[in-house]
Design a protein around this nucleic acid. Sequence first.
DNA 1: GCCTTGACGTTAG
DNA 2: ACTAACGCCAAGG
Length: 115
Amino acid sequence: MSDKKPNDFYLRVYEVVAQIPIGKVTSYGAISKYLGVESGARMVGYAMNNYVSAELGFEIPAHRVLNRLGQLSGRHHFEGDTMRERLEQEGVEFKEEFTVNMEKHFWNPFELEKN
DNA sequence: GCCTTGACGTTAG
DNA sequence: ACTAACGCCAAGG
């Protein structure tokens, strides 16, 4: 298949992020792995950064994407404590001020295939 | 066109 | 258990 499909790795990232259930969170690495790029966690983060200034047709819950430790590593890209507030609003439990209970709320993108 | 930076993760010490 | 270093690859300077 030599289609010049928009391999937009970014777009695929957005699609996955858009399907994260409310009250759940996932990590950059998990998304990357799901997309078949084992070491592309950084690219996922880059995609998110790009999303902010990109005019996508839909909104994505970027606040549900954390690093593997459950830390809100991207909080500085939100206004004030918007990221933390949104997560709390969804019922996500915090262990530290900027660290959520990953064990309890982690959502694996591979669950998309179960459906 | 080279060098630095970055919403990360794994491995080595 | 903790810290340091490397890998990864795209974008901006």
